[in-house]
Structures are given as C-alpha cells and as structure tokens.
C-alpha cells in the first residue's frame, strides 16, 4: 500500500514541443497575409494642419494622395503631373467598389500651401467619387 505514492513521483512530465515549429510558421504566415505594406512615402516634407475635430481614422483607404510643401502631387507614393492624373487614378480604383466604405481616399497636404495647389486635387477626388479623409493633427 505504501508503494503507490512512490510510483506517482517517478512519472516523467513531458512537454509536447514537436508542434512548436509548425505553430511558429503558421504565425508567420498569418502576419504575412494580414500585414499591409505602406504605399506612402515617408520622406515627404508635409506639415499637417491642426484641428480639434480630427479623429483616428478607422476606415481602410483605397488610395493615398499627398501634396508636399513644394506643391508636388503624389498618388500612392508616386509623383503625378496634376489633378487630372489623380482623378483618373481614383476613378480606376473605384470601378470595382460596391459600398461607400470602399470609397475613402486619404488626403495629405502641407498646411502652408495656397488654395491654388490643393483645391483642384480635392475637386478631382470628389469628381472621381472618393470620400476625402483629410489628414491632420489634433490641436490642444
């Protein structure tokens, strides 16, 4: 009768680690599939405008349009000649969309630029059917 507890003590505890590699590779595949590479250029010289009404953007955008402090227009990181290129680019992207949620276009513009630089681009996005997500900074 006294032998029973001794047997229990001798039982080896094995942690199953054979499938750890598979789990790790599955996690990598998950990250690769879910991650989205940034199409925006990080070297653009843009000072964002301030407003108390800006909110965290929760929607996904179909295109990113930027105007730097020199007035150069970028469509998804690539420089374009003018607002007409923006309009056609957005129009092409929105042809396959079905809902309003897929019409959002991110607009990034330098705060010091005059109306002549940015308004034609805003009108081009609107003419193509995009909903403008104008990027800004929250003012205190």
């Amino acid at each position: 009768m006294k032998r029973l507890p001794q047997r229990k003590k001798r039982r080896p505890v094995v942690i199953p680690i054979a499938s750890m590699g598979d789990i790790a590779f599955l996690l990598i595949i998950f990250f690769l599939v879910c991650s989205e590479t940034s199409k925006e250029r990080s070297d653009l010289q843009v000072t964002l405008p301030l407003s108390e009404h800006v909110r965290k953007n929760e929607v996904s955008v179909v295109a990113r349009i930027s105007i730097d402090n020199a007035g150069a227009i970028y469509f998804d990181g690539a420089q374009v000649d003018g607002p007409k290129d923006v309009e056609w680019g957005v129009r092409a992207l929105l042809t396959s969309t079905v809902s309003d949620e897929q019409r959002h276009v991110q607009f990034n513009c330098d705060a010091s630029l005059p109306k002549e630089n940015f308004e034609p681009v805003l009108q081009a996005i609107a003419a193509a059917g995009g909903i403008i997500e104008a990027v800004g900074k929250e003012s205190n």
Partner: peptide
C-alpha cells in the same frame, strides 16, 4: 500607423 483625419464627402 493610425492617422488622424476628418471625413469630408464632397458631392461629385
């Protein structure tokens, strides 16, 4: 990256 923005739906 989560940018802060305002949404403006300008009539087309």
């Amino acid at each position: 990256v989560k940018v802060k923005s305002i949404t403006a739906d300008l009539p087309a």
